[in-house]
């Protein structure tokens, strides 16, 4: 009798969870559909200027036609490549610099003010210098994507290295471990969660770097399309590029989230 009652209570609990999820998803869909509908209606009824704000139908048409003719895919590929490259270089570079800082306390002390300045400085302001130094090709755009996340990665990862419980190191030292062995066995794996969380931040940052880079010089890529659309006053093109950026940034974010789940499962 009581057992049935327990089961029933559990079932009720599961039902409330399901119900809650349904409510949240319906609201999310409602906001999306409502926004698109409102946009379309306001554009058709000239509440907003369709020349500037376009309309969902037009944006959709631009995306379909440019994808079918192949040009959009090229731009998309280039931007994705640059973003992923910038993201990887920035993240890995940041972790390597943090490791160097950890390996020598004195080096870290010496570098401290420079890191503070580099971190505080808006990295996109370096754009023109990068272009002059590295040319107008992919290299400067990828560098832009990397440079924007490398410093923050360095700072976050370095502080994570320092926050590892010193007793883990104590255990290793009592076994006669060298500093490098301590790093490999304790410091690096213990700082894993912090490194994984920087991945998520870096996805967003490297998109910023790459799009700004493309604004400045590119002849290809979604950032270029936005600027080009703006110059020829084709706002459907601008908005369709924006939609693609939003979709692919979200996909990349979700992939990194998956990776995070996988890494946490296999490293803790």
């Amino acid at each position: 009798m009581t057992k049935n009652n327990d089961k029933q209570l559990f079932q009720e609990y599961k039902d409330t969870l399901k119900m809650e999820k349904k409510v949240v998803i319906s609201w999310q869909l409602a906001i999306l559909v409502g926004f698109i509908a409102l946009w379309e209606i306001s554009s058709r009824l000239y509440w907003i200027d369709p020349l500037i704000f376009s309309s969902p139908v037009q944006v959709f048409e631009v995306i379909i036609s440019s994808i079918s003719e192949g040009s959009m895919l090229l731009h998309l590929q280039i931007t994705l490549f640059e973003t992923i490259a910038g993201f990887l270089i920035g993240t890995i570079g940041g972790i390597i610099i943090a490791t160097l800082l950890w390996s020598s306390k004195r080096f870290a002390k010496i570098m401290d003010p420079y890191l503070v300045i580099l971190n505080a400085m808006p990295k996109v302001a370096l754009g023109p210098i990068l272009i002059v130094a590295l040319g107008t090709g992919y290299i400067s755009i990828i560098t832009m994507g990397a440079i924007i996340c490398v410093i923050i990665t360095t700072l976050v990862v370095y502080s994570a290295f320092n926050e590892v419980d010193p007793n883990y190191e104590k255990v290793l030292i009592s076994f006669g471990a060298t500093r490098w062995q301590s790093f490999k066995e304790a410091i690096f794996p213990a700082a894993m969660p912090a490194m994984i969380s920087t991945l998520k931040v870096n996805v967003g940052l490297s998109w910023v770097g790459v799009i700004v880079g493309e604004f400045l010089v590119a002849k290809n890529g979604l950032g270029y399309l936005i600027i080009y659309g703006f110059q020829v006053f084709d706002f459907s093109l601008v908005l369709s590029s924006l939609v693609l950026i939003a979709v692919f940034a979200a996909i990349m974010y979700k992939l990194v989230e998956r990776l995070e789940g996988w890494l946490i499962k296999h490293s803790t």
């Binding site: 883990y168 255990v171 076994f175 006669g176 471990a177 213990a190």
Partner: peptide, 21 residues
């Protein structure tokens, strides 16, 4: 406290000393 490394299995924790040396 035990300070076992949470990301290592029990056997890997135990074998830490031999690994270091």
């Amino acid at each position: 406290q035990d300070y076992l490394f949470p990301w290592k299995t029990i056997i890997d924790n135990v074998l830490l000393g031999p690994k270091i040396s």
